[in-house]
Computed example of a mutant assay.
Amino acid sequence: MDRLQAMQVFTRVVDTNSFTRAAETLDLPRASVTTIIQNLEAFLGTRLMHRTTRRLSLTPDGAAYYERCVRILADVEETEASFQSGNKKPHGKLRIDMPGPIGRLLVIPALCEFHQRYPDIDLQLGLSDRPVDLLQEGVDCVVRVGALQDSSLVARRIGLFEGVSCAAPDYIARAGMPTSLEDLDNHKAVNYFSSRTGRTLDWAFLVDGKEVEVKMKSIVSVNDSDAYVTCGLEGFGLIQPALFMVLPHLQSGQLVEVLPKLKPLPMPISVVYPHSRHLSPKVRVFVDWIAELFDRCPLLSGRGSLDATCTKRTFEERESAPMLDTPVISEWIA
């Protein structure tokens, strides 16, 4: 029995709380995972976990063995990395998850650059806005917007997510231009509701350094960012999307900014990964690279304006591109 592999399989089963998910993240047949755990328990002469059709739970021996396995595997990885760093480039599969528009607009156009630097990294890029359990799903790191909710994770801030309040000219012609937060009581908005909770998300402004939330009335609510912006373009009401998402529409006049002196509450953009004494080389280089990438993008680094661009291709060149699949800011909190 390969005891190191057995430790890796056992810790992954515990982290994912599933034999099936562990097998998927390790690229092993599920039957192999089951066999390895059975052989490990036989070798140790103790039961490590209780298994039912619904859940897994560690025995006292299993909990103690898990803690030691985590330390041993971290030491092995750190030792290997210390020798590889000087003579070998980072390699292996790297699983990343990030919001769709950030991936499509900023990251994917620059991936050739990353691949040229690190040709031995097999990048598996997930584009989603749902909360990702890094340990259970075997994801190495995620890019998310908002405050870090899980204290067991590490967040490195790489940018700032700025929103904009806007509407179609046709809507402004019918309803008038709001000039204060009080005026919003007389306006309709396209509301966005969370796919996870069903809760309608309030608008948030930064006023004199403090967050002010405004509950908007609407005649339509959606839970899809493409539909959200489309409804705004069609004149259903005010919208408050990400600035980089609707910049082409603002530049072309299809949307008009409202309340320009009252900015939506900005939120930090972070790359998030599990806490560990040692960050694997492949994760470290990706984190450093994406931080560099965001720093080159005014719209996502806190230096945004209606004249800013981010990628090699300007936003003017992308005006005819399909609309970005981006939820409003608050929905991106991990």
Rank of each mutant, 00 (worst) to 15 (best):
D122E: 15
A173G: 03
T326P: 00
P281N: 10
A63G: 06
P266M: 03
G253W: 03
S18C: 02
S165W: 00
N223V: 09
L300N: 10
L247T: 04
I172L: 15
T52E: 05
S82N: 09
S276G: 05
A189S: 15
Y65R: 10
E234M: 14
M177T: 08
T53I: 11
N186P: 02
L255S: 06
H249D: 10
P178Y: 07
S85G: 03
R54E: 12
V222W: 09
D307F: 03
L259I: 04
T200V: 15
V139M: 10
D27E: 15
R277A: 04
F43Q: 14
S152D: 08
I102N: 08
M323H: 11
E292Y: 04
Q251H: 12
L40N: 07
T197Y: 07
K93I: 09
H249W: 07
N39E: 13
A74Y: 02
A168R: 07
A168L: 10
H278W: 06
E162M: 07
K215W: 05
F315Q: 03
P248S: 06
T197H: 11
I36R: 15
V328F: 01
D122Y: 10
F43P: 01
L94E: 02
E331T: 06
A242L: 03
S82I: 05
R303I: 00
F244L: 02
S330V: 05
L238M: 11
